[in-house]
Design a protein around this nucleic acid. Structure first.
Lengths: 191, 191
DNA sequence: TCGCAAAAAGGACAATTGTCCAAACAGCCC
DNA sequence: GGGCTGTTTGGACAATTGTCCTTTTTGCGA
């Protein structure tokens, strides 16, 4: 549920120590602060060092859908930079967040000049695809109850860390449905 | 709905002409034939030259969920090769299919030695992520009816090309629900 | 401590979707 | 054409989820 990429984080930390400090820049955000908002040009690629953020889309009917929760080592903005697109998603800090950011041109240069970095990014992209594929399939094929039990199995404390409305938006259901299902599970001592 | 990547196809065709014929190998499949099945080691990366195939997962409850329909220029197997994983999905031909396949080690070498190829693959991966993100969000946030109208807008003839059970599996609904919604739409002359 | 506002939880009903099964239809062999 | 089989469609009811709104709880300043 909260995505991580320790391998990438280690590499970026090393880069941050070796390179001049205008290549890998550290930046802090407070809870609820916007890191990326949609339909904007993106100038940096961000790698999370600390904290949790949510990545979400807002649909034409006003509903907010959460794509992923990002934790340590996860990368955002790379898709827009690689494809030269405007941002499609919004990224917002849930807890306090520390990121490393890399200017987009430097990021593209690194991709070409640093084979290890290139492979790390290729693997990060593949991992995002696989995660999305499995999650989407599971969500569409199982009832809300199974989805909640699955979240609890993968991240037992999620109910205390992620606001309820965000959990509902992640599962693509209403807050009412979430509460109802949680109560059913509690009555049966499964939660 | 049916994914394509003309840019990648053009490049592979060029590669097929230049390179010795054991680098890019052409292969044919008949309708319903399996191209990749899940939980297997994958030895090739496949790029579609002709035809349509479906990419699907089978859940523990037996339900089949269709991730994507692949058309010209789309690539499969690259995720497993890059991440050294077993296959998670199944790929099955819907129409007659022609693919170019590249042996996994050669694919990895190309990624490192051919910058243009590397960029094409990076962009293909990003495009898959973006497509999945938008689709998942739309599906979770809109009723079946809107999803059908959206498919029709993007691919007017889909109802005659893709079997109904596949459309239902793509939308994550039952055949019964699909038929019902189609009838509603027809009664209102929207389909 | 009281009172207020904002957030969270839940009741009641409506709409949507699934399950199960029967009817309708098409293809095909004799 | 008659009868068989498999596929497609749809009826009836059940289960799930959403909508709308009220009640309850929580946090905080006066």
């Amino acid at each position: 549920m909260i995505r991580q990429n320790q391998e990438l984080l280690n590499y970026i930390i090393k880069l941050h120590q070796i390179e001049p400090h205008d290549v890998v820049i550290e930046q802090h955000y407070i809870p609820q602060e916007t890191i990326i908002s949609h339909d904007k040009r993106v100038n940096y690629v961000y790698i999370f060092k600390e904290g949790i953020a949510k990545c979400f889309l807002i649909e034409d009917n006003g509903k907010e859908f959460i794509e992923e929760f990002f934790g340590k080592g996860e990368i955002v903005g790379e898709i827009e930079v690689i494809n030269s697109h405007l941002t499609v998603a919004n990224i917002e800090a849930i807890t306090s967040v520390v990121v490393f950011k890399i200017q987009k041109d430097i990021f593209m240069q690194l991709l070409d000049s640093d084979k290890t970095f290139n492979h790390l990014i290729l693997r990060a992209l593949c991992s995002k695809i696989q995660y999305k594929a499995i999650r989407h399939s599971y969500h569409q094929s199982h009832p809300v109850e199974s989805n909640l039990l699955r979240l609890k199995r993968d991240f037992p404390d999620f109910i205390n860390v992620i606001p309820k409305q965000d959990i509902a938006n992640y599962l693509g259901i209403t807050l009412r449905s979430l509460n109802r299902t949680l109560n059913d599970l509690k009555e049966r001592y499964l939660f």
